[in-house]
């Protein structure tokens, strides 16, 4: 465990050192984060100029969703997504060989190898938005809610990671899949709103097919105190089961790897 944490730390440091050479990327990311936030806030503004509740959610509650949305996007785009993208490229080019020969677990290594340092700005932005939302919600957020929120958020991030790993593992069979992670990206947009507002078929898709509901709506429900215990238990159960499934799938997949160019 300590080894793996050190591994993550080394890659984080490498990523930071690497990125410090390209400081304009910081400016670009700052602009992109600001634009993303403004889009979300203006969207909320337009909606709440016409109504004061959206599917039972008040404005500060939806602001909390925007916060969680930005936070989770930042977390996954910081390490998981760039690493898995690089892993799929490695499978295609046959350069995964170099990873497999390292004396650590290959799944861990391919999951932490690439760091997009500036995405941490989204994490900060998400936390700030969340803080503003909580201060507007005021006294209704107690310690119990905070604990439930953290548990649900952890479960959500675990679910998303396992889901992305399962998608990426498909690269072992279908070599050219570089865009498959973008499917997730384009569906992730839907998480900016509580999934309860979508028609049942889309809600089912966003819960079970692409588990965005578990990653964003469920933690936010925990925070504002409307999460029912079956939903929380469901999220926890999935957060335990899905990594195991992903692990199993990874084990099967890696046996298919033959080293394209080696």
């Amino acid at each position: 465990m300590v080894t793996y944490l050190r591994l993550l730390w080394i890659h984080l440091r490498l990523g930071i050192l690497n990125e410090l050479q390209y400081r304009t990327n910081l400016v670009i990311q700052l602009i992109q984060s600001a634009v993303g936030l403004c889009t979300a806030l203006l969207g909320l503004g337009v909606i709440f100029s016409k109504t004061d509740r959206l599917g039972g959610w008040s404005a500060p509650e939806l602001l909390a969703i925007v916060g969680v949305y930005t936070l989770v996007a930042g977390i996954t785009q910081l390490v998981v997504q760039p690493s898995l993208t690089r892993f799929m490229e490695d499978v295609r080019l046959g350069t995964l060989d170099f990873t497999l020969t390292k004396p650590v677990d290959a799944q861990v290594l391919v999951s932490v190898r690439q760091v997009e340092v500036w995405k941490s700005i989204d994490i900060v932005v998400g936390l700030v938005v969340l803080a503003v939302a909580i201060s507007q919600l005021g006294a209704s957020v107690g310690l119990a809610q905070a604990v439930v929120f953290l548990i649900a958020l952890l479960a959500g991030v675990t679910i998303i990671y396992s889901f992305l790993l399962i998608l990426a593992t498909c690269a072992f069979w279908f070599i050219r899949l570089d865009n498959i992670l973008n499917i997730f990206q384009s569906m992730y947009e839907a998480g900016r709103w509580p999934i309860g507002i979508y028609p049942p078929w889309l809600r089912a898709m966003l819960t079970f097919l692409v588990p965005i509901g578990f990653a964003i709506t469920v933690p936010t429900e925990g925070l504002v105190g409307r999460l029912t215990s079956p939903n929380l238990l469901g999220a926890i159960a999935l957060a335990i089961a899905l990594p195991l499934i992903a692990r199993l799938f990874w084990k099967i997949g890696i046996r298919h790897y033959s080293g394209a160019s080696a």
Partner: peptide, 28 residues
């Protein structure tokens, strides 16, 4: 694959705003 991704994005976005505004209309 790339084609499918474009199509999902293309379809999902209007459906998102449609769902949002339908919900607003119902609540009003």
């Amino acid at each position: 694959g790339a084609l499918v991704i474009w199509i999902i994005g293309l379809i999902l976005q209007p459906v998102i705003y449609l769902s949002v505004w339908s919900t607003v209309a119902e609540s009003r």
